[in-house]
Amino acid sequence: MTHTDPTTPDEFARLAARIEDEVAELQVDSFGPSDALRLGLILVRLGTERALPIAIDIRRGSQILFHVALEGAQADNDVWIARKARAVERYGIPSLLLGTRPKIAGKRIESEGWFDQMEYAAHGGGFPVSVRGTGIVAVATVSGLPQIEDHDLVVSALREFVEG
């Protein structure tokens, strides 16, 4: 599944709206270590079935609940995962949304002096795991594909997790 990256303000606005809808939709009643394992294994199955060269990570704060590198993943993917996960934790939104919102106005968050690119990544693949009535309790992250595909893979896994 390949995606064409948005290029116009309207396309970025549509992408941002879609991501906001996904955040609202994909909330859970509870989430602990056994849930992280189940979600992680869904991501492993999806990645393995599609032969995707990805690394997968689920963390709660500084605690890594699940982490795996599938065939073809690189050490660099772990660096991207850490930066994407920190972005979700710091800003409270999916990493793709963090990078998309400024583009609606023709800007890049990376151009802002306050945004530390060495610490955070405003690229798709990091998604908050939110418990209804509590808020974000963990972050699920994928790295290794084009950013919208990283994001969509996490969303697909979360959707399956929530439904099943």
Rank of each mutant, 00 (worst) to 15 (best):
Y91L: 14
L153S: 04
P53F: 01
A24I: 10
T2F: 14
E25V: 13
G125S: 09
R90C: 13
A55M: 08
E20D: 07
L96G: 09
K107T: 09
G133M: 06
V79Q: 07
A75F: 11
V142N: 07
A85L: 12
W80N: 02
D116M: 06
L37T: 10
F31C: 02
G99N: 01
R50M: 11
R90D: 06
V139Y: 07
R50A: 10
L52F: 09
V142K: 05
G40L: 02
V44G: 01
G135A: 09
G92K: 05
L158S: 00
I64G: 06
D21V: 15
K84W: 07
V162C: 10
N77R: 00
L96V: 10
A24E: 08
G124S: 08
A140Y: 04
L97I: 05
F161Y: 10
P53Y: 00
P33N: 11
P33L: 11
E110I: 13
R59S: 03
G61W: 09
I64F: 05
G126K: 05
F66C: 08
Q27R: 14
E20N: 11
Q27M: 13
E163K: 07
H67P: 12
D150P: 03
Y91N: 03
I136T: 14
H3C: 15
L70I: 04
R86M: 12
G40E: 08
V28H: 00
L15V: 02
S130C: 12
P9A: 04
L70R: 01
W80Q: 02
A122D: 05
P6I: 03
L98E: 01
L98H: 03
K107R: 15
V129H: 06
A82C: 11
A55Y: 06
G124Q: 02
F115G: 11
I109F: 02
A87M: 03
T7F: 08
D5M: 11
R108D: 11
Q63N: 14
V137S: 10
I58Q: 03
G164C: 08
P146G: 08
Q27S: 14
G32I: 09
D29C: 10
P94C: 10
L145F: 00
A105N: 02
T100H: 01
A82K: 06
P94W: 04
D57A: 12
D5T: 11
I109D: 05
L39R: 10
E25D: 13
E149W: 05
G135S: 05
D5S: 13
H3Q: 15
F115T: 02
R50K: 12
G113D: 09
G106F: 06
P102N: 08
G124F: 02
A157E: 04
G92R: 00
A17F: 03
Y91C: 10
E110K: 14
A17Y: 08
P53K: 02
E163T: 13
W114A: 14
A157Y: 00
R132G: 04
V154Q: 03
